[in-house]
């Protein structure tokens, strides 16, 4: 009951708030699993790539943040091999800043922002973070390779 009204409201929010380069749809009728796709920001190594993201709502949602994972491999300081994302909004306080005032749409927008602007000081992947800080050209090249291999090839 608590969750149903909430998720119904969120479905409306997804339509209202999401920009054109983010799509998010429920996978089945249970309304606790969503599939989202974010288009890589132009003028970044991720440009034109389509990154699939899995969003899962636990039974305790919205008292717990949604579980958000990348399904498409991405070369990024804050996203690890298995797709886990290091983002404040996805963690419970005091470590993070999840709050019931946030929602799936706002979280996805934050993820898109994170793709565009990595946060190497709070990196999940130590070596990628170090490379991001010291050798940006090399980082961009590898990120571009990954994007072409995983996020663009798939589209064709």
């Amino acid at each position: 009951m608590l969750k149903t009204s909430r998720v119904k409201h969120e479905l409306q929010l997804l339509q209202q708030l999401l920009p054109q380069d983010i799509i998010c749809k429920p996978i089945n009728d249970s309304l606790c699993e969503f599939k989202a796709s974010i288009v890589g920001p132009p003028a970044s190594p991720y440009a034109d790539g389509v990154f699939d993201i899995e969003v899962r709502l636990s039974d305790r949602y919205p008292f717990q943040p949604p579980l958000v994972k990348f399904a498409t491999p991405i070369y990024h300081p804050n996203i690890d091999q298995s797709g886990r994302i290091c983002l404040d909004q996805l963690k419970m306080p005091p470590a993070g800043c999840w709050s019931p005032s946030l929602n799936i749409a706002s979280v996805l927008i934050a993820v898109k922002q994170l793709i565009n602007e990595a946060n190497p000081d709070d990196g999940l992947m130590a070596d990628i973070s170090a490379q991001y800080k010291s050798d940006r050209t090399e980082f961009n090249a590898v990120a571009r390779q990954w994007t072409i291999k995983h996020a663009i090839a798939k589209v064709r």
């Binding site: 009951m1 608590l2 009204s5 909430r6 409201h9 969120e10 019931p100 005032s101």
Partner: peptide, 12 residues
Amino acid sequence: TPCGICCGYRLN
């Protein structure tokens, strides 16, 4: 206005 957490009007 609906509840800011569950987004519903009536709870129980």
